[in-house]
Structure formats: C-alpha cells, structure tokens
Design a binder for these strands. Sequence first.
DNA 1: TGATTATATCAAAAAATATTGATATAATTG
DNA 2: CAATTATATCAATATTTTTTGATATAATCA
Lengths: 105, 105
Amino acid sequence: MDNVKISQALSDPIRYKILMMLVRSETGCCPVISNSDGDSHVGLCNCEIMNELSMIQSRVSYHMKELVETGLVNEEQRGKWKYYFANRKKLLDYVNQVKRDFNLE
Amino acid sequence: MDNVKISQALSDPIRYKILMMLVRSETGCCPVISNSDGDSHVGLCNCEIMNELSMIQSRVSYHMKELVETGLVNEEQRGKWKYYFANRKKLLDYVNQVKRDFNLE
DNA sequence: TGATTATATCAAAAAATATTGATATAATTG
DNA sequence: CAATTATATCAATATTTTTTGATATAATCA
C-alpha cells in the first residue's frame, strides 16, 4: 500500500529530519539558509542539506531520491542547483489515511 | 525520535495489516474471528493472526514483538493465549506529531 | 503428572537498506 | 571551449531487517 511506502520513507531519521528542514524552509518565519550565491530562498538544494547535516553528497542524493520517489518531496532544477520542496499535501493524505485505517478520532 | 520508530513499525506491510486487523476486531460491528475454543472475542491472539495471514508462528511472534516494543500494540495473557490490542491512543499521538513536525493543516 | 497447545527465543540464512568512494552527467561561468 | 560547480549513478561493502527451523518456556488439559 502507499502508506506502507510512506512509512518506510519516514522511518529513517535522516529523511525525517530533511523533511522537517524542508517544511521549515518553506513555512518558517524567515529563510535561514542561503546557497553559495548568498541567495536566500525557499526550499533547499542538495548542497545545503549536505552542509547542514554534514553528509557526503552521494548520501544526500540517495535519500532525496527515496523521498522524491514516494512523492513526499518535489524537485525543481534552478540553474545549477536542484531544489527540493516538501509535499505537504501528500503528508496530509498520509495522515488522513492512517486515521481511516486505524479508526482514529 | 519516537515518530521515526513508529514509522519503522508501520513500514512493514504485514505489521500494517496486523494493526488494521486488530483495530477491526476491536471497533468493527462484530468480531469476525474466533479461537480454537470457538470463543468469540475482542483482540487477536498469535494463532489467529497466524491462521488469518498464513504465516508460521515464529514470524508472527517476531512482528508482534516489534509492534509491542513501539507501544503500538498492547498484550495480555488470557489462559494459554496471548491477546493483542491496538493502542489507538499511541497511533493518534503519532499522527498528531507528524502534523506538528510537518506543519500540516 | 505427562501430553498437548500456544508463544518466545535463538542462531543461521536471506533479503532489503544504507553508506562510501569513484566516476559520470549536466549546467554554468569565464 | 575548458574549468568549475552541483548532482546522479554505480559497484562494493556494511548494516539492518526479516524469515526460517529448531528448540525452549509456559499454560492448560486429560
């Protein structure tokens, strides 16, 4: 089922954290991170996540791919950077499905 | 984080299904399963899950342990059977934490 | 009590996931 | 165009999770 896949995506601490970072960068009061151009923006690129979490590049790519494949994250190429955005609609769908599946509320 | 552990527990299709079965047995209009005593009851025991999903016993035990360890399932010994119950409160807490973490609604 | 039934645990194997370093691709810049 | 920067992919390895069969424990039943 779709919800099992999404649970799987959320079951890694790094991915869970990245998703939270994406949400914060999109909904927080002010963007906190800027790329090497000093550009402040919404969404995060691979390299920003990499620096923020001190991870090597291929590891970030791997996890971003996992997130994109479940639909929890959308991506967009902007110049030489690829930016990622949390798909909050998908997350909400997940939450609502969990509620239905387990008869909550 | 606790939510990562719970996501992990939900990330296996068998466990997800078992949890749904438990919920159904507790909240459905009528209990559907009965044990070898012909006893109709709320909650499910190891052997009922085993038969229902055609799984060997140790495999069921393994998954039930995973579920119990995250707190998603409670257990109770009743005679020679051990009955399991979904912890819907825990599931609701999970859902609400996901909402907070990802700024949903 | 001995036999039976239900569940737990363990060690080994299998399968799935994650990490790394190397290399490839792709966009941009000078 | 060559150099640089950002990301993707790949193969090898490591780690984690799952499955299985065997055996142990524990409750009940005759």
